[in-house]
Amino acid sequence: MNNVNIEQLKERATFNQDVLDAYVERMKAAYEPYQSFVFSSPSEMFTGLHSLYTKGYTPCNELMSNLLPPMYYQVWCYKPEATQQAELYEVIQRARASYEKSVEEAKEQLFEALVEAEYQEEEAKAQSKAEREAQKRKDAIRSKIQKEMNT
């Protein structure tokens, strides 16, 4: 692993509140505060809507309610404020847990990358040392044979 990858892992393995905040904001932006309800008849729709309104659901004017073949009624309603807050809290908790997990995974990857880099460095040093020792032995043999030939 090269130094660029190790630096990237170091960055990912370091908790960064700004990164977490941006991730949480993206997750919150993806949250949908509304829900679709489908009814099979007008009377079921009116009864169902009355029940939903008493639970705190409100009409969602941003989305079109539809008549779905064969004669189903789809209505979009905003979830009650308490439900939205509870769900958003869960979204935020999941986002934080996901980010913290990614930081921990990056720490593990960084650890393994550092171990591998250190091992490769030691291997290169050992290889270099072995090559130098081999060259010394070869030079000693040359010297010995040259002396024998000169005498």
Score class of each variant (00 low, 15 high):
residue 37 F to R: 05
residue 39 F to I: 00
residue 39 F to S: 00
residue 40 S to N: 13
residue 41 S to H: 01
residue 43 S to A: 12
residue 43 S to G: 03
residue 44 E to C: 05
residue 46 F to N: 15
residue 48 G to W: 00
residue 49 L to M: 13
residue 49 L to S: 10
residue 50 H to L: 10
residue 50 H to S: 14
residue 50 H to F: 10
residue 51 S to H: 14
residue 51 S to Q: 08
residue 52 L to K: 15
residue 53 Y to A: 15
residue 53 Y to P: 02
residue 54 T to K: 15
residue 55 K to E: 14
residue 56 G to W: 03
residue 58 T to N: 04
residue 59 P to A: 14
residue 62 E to S: 13
residue 63 L to S: 10
residue 63 L to E: 12
residue 63 L to D: 09
residue 66 N to A: 11
residue 66 N to Y: 08
residue 67 L to V: 15
residue 68 L to S: 12
residue 70 P to T: 07
residue 72 Y to T: 11
residue 73 Y to G: 07
residue 73 Y to M: 13
residue 75 V to H: 07
residue 75 V to K: 09
residue 77 C to Y: 09
residue 77 C to F: 06
residue 78 Y to T: 05
residue 78 Y to K: 03
residue 79 K to S: 08
residue 80 P to C: 04
residue 81 E to K: 08
residue 81 E to C: 02
residue 82 A to Y: 09
residue 83 T to H: 12
residue 83 T to R: 06
residue 84 Q to K: 06
residue 84 Q to L: 01
residue 85 Q to D: 06
residue 86 A to H: 01
residue 86 A to N: 09
residue 86 A to L: 09
residue 87 E to K: 01
residue 91 V to L: 00
residue 92 I to M: 00
residue 93 Q to V: 01
residue 95 A to V: 00
residue 97 A to M: 07
residue 98 S to E: 06
residue 98 S to F: 03
residue 99 Y to E: 01
residue 101 K to P: 01
residue 102 S to W: 00
residue 103 V to C: 10
residue 104 E to Y: 02
residue 105 E to I: 08
residue 105 E to R: 13
residue 105 E to Y: 09
residue 106 A to D: 01
residue 111 F to Q: 15
residue 115 V to N: 14
residue 117 A to M: 03
residue 129 K to E: 15
residue 130 A to F: 10
residue 133 E to R: 11
residue 134 A to T: 07
residue 136 K to P: 05
residue 136 K to A: 13
residue 140 A to I: 06
